[in-house]
């Protein structure tokens, strides 16, 4: 295996930035690696930065929605950030509108959105335990 896309853990979130041209094997490896990491770290959210991705095909588009679906089952929110206009147009032309995947313009906005999404989820648990109250309140800000 020549190269691998690094998955970084940041608190309750996983961060992955696609900086190289995606080929099919790399996408498959990433898919598998990510599912394992989500379970291992009990991640609540995954942020995928594709700002450096300039070429997409239907396979990569499908892979993104596959990752989102798998993550949802594993109770992790997925947000895709920094999609280039050309990539967005291509995906639309391919008929892949990535239903159900949250998107944001850049990593900063994506992180904020992800935090509020996770905080929304946890607001119920907060009442019961009261343990995460502080973190949730600041995250939801």
């Amino acid at each position: 295996m020549a190269d691998k896309i690094p998955i970084l853990k940041m608190g309750r979130f996983l961060l992955l930035s696609i900086q190289v041209d995606m080929h099919d094997q790399l996408a498959l490896d990433l898919q598998e690696d990510l599912t394992h990491q989500i379970v291992r770290h009990k991640a609540k959210g995954v942020l995928i930065d594709i700002s450096a991705l300039e070429i997409v095909d239907s396979f990569i588009g499908r892979m993104l929605s596959h990752i989102a679906n798998v993550s949802r089952i594993l109770d992790a929110k997925v947000i895709v950030v920094g999609m280039q206009p050309a990539v967005a147009i291509t995906l639309v032309e391919l008929g892949l509108s990535l239903e159900g995947i949250a998107t944001a313009l850049n990593t900063e906005k994506g992180m904020r959105r992800l935090e509020s999404m996770v905080a929304e989820d946890e607001s119920v648990g907060e009442l019961e335990s009261g343990e995460n109250a502080d973190t949730s309140a600041s995250a939801g800000d």
Binding site: G82, M83, V92, T103, L105
Partner: peptide, 12 residues
Amino acid sequence: IKTVTAAKLMGA
């Protein structure tokens, strides 16, 4: 609709 969808994909 395509324009709207593409913008949505980018997060807008």
